[in-house]
Design a protein around this nucleic acid. Sequence first.
DNA 1: CTTGACCCTCCAGCGACTGGAAGCCCCATA
DNA 2: TATGGGGCTTCCAGTCGCTGGAGGGTCAAG
Lengths: 131, 131
Amino acid sequence: MNIGEVSQHTGLPPKTIRYYEDIGLVKPLRDANGYRAFRESEMHKLAFLGRARTLGFSIEDCRNLLALWEDKNRASADVRAIAKEHLAQIEAKISGLQEMRDTLSTLVRDCAGDDRPDCPILKTLGTAAAT
Amino acid sequence: MNIGEVSQHTGLPPKTIRYYEDIGLVKPLRDANGYRAFRESEMHKLAFLGRARTLGFSIEDCRNLLALWEDKNRASADVRAIAKEHLAQIEAKISGLQEMRDTLSTLVRDCAGDDRPDCPILKTLGTAAAT
DNA sequence: CTTGACCCTCCAGCGACTGGAAGCCCCATA
DNA sequence: TATGGGGCTTCCAGTCGCTGGAGGGTCAAG
């Protein structure tokens, strides 16, 4: 399978697939002409990576998850630990963003948004703690 | 005012302040010895930047907001437009993360997390669309 | 034989810093 | 006057996960 086909099946751009090879996540064979030749197993790995990435796992997490995936004797606890840690980070990120959103939406609501220069958004940024 | 003092007042690390000078957000004077000499106005700008950044505005947004802040004749509509756009992006980011969180927390919940290799997290990543 | 779609490598850049090296400068203390 | 410690300077490189582009080889169809 050439990179294009793999790209279509996995939804990952060719550039990304090449990058994943660069950093050692997949190791496709090569045809005589130098083209990458992906086996089924390679493609499944890439699909796995794609899904793990959509769930926001870092590349290093992905590398570990992939290793666990390949290891038929792994303990599910190991996987769960990674996922839990990641979940906690996502939750932290969400609440940070929610704080931003709350402050911002108050400011946007209170701003007339007309031709006059008076603006609570700038006023807040200029003087108060924007929390 | 030296960079250290400004750093203390604004909460921004010296490195960041130097970086902001590099990209033209502030233009401190220089003492004879080469040290940066910040005026009050510079420090206020930096404080403004710090607050705008905590609200998640990009550097380019900050540059624009700063210009509007300095322009006493600006229309509040211009500021509001930037903030609204940013707010929309934050909301998009939040809902993306919430989707991740929902999927992940289901998976984490369903995973025994013991010594056995059976793991719904890996099962999902390996086969299904992780949505 | 040419066209156009593929594929290859290598280098650079994104955003917003951050770390570290190498080297001044300034002040206090011995 | 020497020394030590902190603060300041510049410059370069690295972070993360790609992405764009240049410059070129390969392949199948018409």
